[in-house]
Design a protein around this nucleic acid. Sequence first.
DNA 1: CGTACTATTGATAGATATCAACGCTGGTGG
DNA 2: CCACCAGCGTTGATATCTATCAATAGTACG
Lengths: 240, 240
Amino acid sequence: MTSITALSRKLDNFGTLSDADHVTLDKAAQGGHQIGPKQDIIREGDKPNTVHLILEGFACRYKLLPDGSRQIVAYLIPGDFCDLHVFIMREMDHSIASLSPCTVVDIPRATILGLLEHPTIAQALRWATLVDEAILREWLVSMGRRPAEQRLAHLMCELLVRLRAVGLAQDGYELPVTQAELADTLGLSGVHVNRSLQSLRITGMIQLRGSSLLIPDVDALMEFSGFSPAYLHLLQQPLR
Amino acid sequence: MTSITALSRKLDNFGTLSDADHVTLDKAAQGGHQIGPKQDIIREGDKPNTVHLILEGFACRYKLLPDGSRQIVAYLIPGDFCDLHVFIMREMDHSIASLSPCTVVDIPRATILGLLEHPTIAQALRWATLVDEAILREWLVSMGRRPAEQRLAHLMCELLVRLRAVGLAQDGYELPVTQAELADTLGLSGVHVNRSLQSLRITGMIQLRGSSLLIPDVDALMEFSGFSPAYLHLLQQPLR
DNA sequence: CGTACTATTGATAGATATCAACGCTGGTGG
DNA sequence: CCACCAGCGTTGATATCTATCAATAGTACG
């Protein structure tokens, strides 16, 4: 395969991209600049005029509540767009921030419009949007019906599969996220995240040293958390 | 305005439809058939070959968990599509069922493709998809960070605004949903929904007799629940 | 007039939040 | 170089929210 960038690799999972499409995508995703951790990339109310694409690092979508608490509603990993919808929506209804240090490209409007003229690329981008929506639905299932430990485990499984899909994980990965951020993601308190992580560690379902996550038995963790990769709509269920 | 159907009215909130577009949409949304309450419309794993549109009644998207519990992840009201993404995705990753009796149209693939040839309609449909995504994000905020009473109140505010946008509500509406279904929606138990509803009634924030919901002071309920309509991306914030 | 679903109520159990404190680490300024 | 500070992880004690269990009552419907 000619895929170089995470974007190209990710969209390859839709299954219909030509070699020429890959080249086109890789060209559009060139460049980029570094930003530090915990920096806002876009803020609620903004109307950005370029499209932001994550090349390296973890970022998140989040919303702030009147009382100051925060809810993270998505994780963005390499290959994910921050605001592809900017051509349709008037303004951002949420903010986006880096979690780890990130490399981000600002892709001009015209470049995106150029991509959309390739029918297969346009379809693949729509597919990516629909997968984002499916992930939101699955997160809602987690929040509504899974207890804390399974919520954590399910998130780890999802990130494993998504990172594998862009070639960035095997049996583990770097999870550059503080426990407080996990709490804001899963609708829990920081203290409870800490205790749930310990429980997952003690039972041997995960190994977590610093931000290095290793999942010794992926099938076991998937079984435990009720994870089923169908909602990610990947071409092959990777290594399963 | 020439809008007849809920679909046409809903998409009018995007702001760029011509009179001819409205006629085209109304034509596509003709017909329909009745189904009873609590009937599956599409099941997880299906690959439907028509697109389903709700004309009347309430429906929901839901997922079942291994332990038999259910999480409702979206409410569908008149004007909402069940599976517009069917041209892209291989199969449904969730199910859809009626809550109340419903009128549903099965729109042939070819008719939808015809609609997508009108650029303004195609844009409006993409807008509708993005609003669905924004609603999912806001539900995630509710599940993660709002206590039971505010979760209930927030849902009621959202449905009020969405129903107003298609001309189906003023200061209240029919909410043909059992307390058990509300529980599956909000990630709560049925008993707790019951008690939270009572609390909302006692404080006078809502009046609920049977399925008739009346909101005496809409601003107060919005304030209480932290509801802000921006995420629905409507043209005018209706009556506010 | 039974049967099933829905709403309601009380009592109890369990999950998770909150509060407070402590240690560790890495950076930074004197 | 060291002292200080901030952020992060950890722990214990307690409070609060929400689930579960069980029973009753109303309601619709055949």
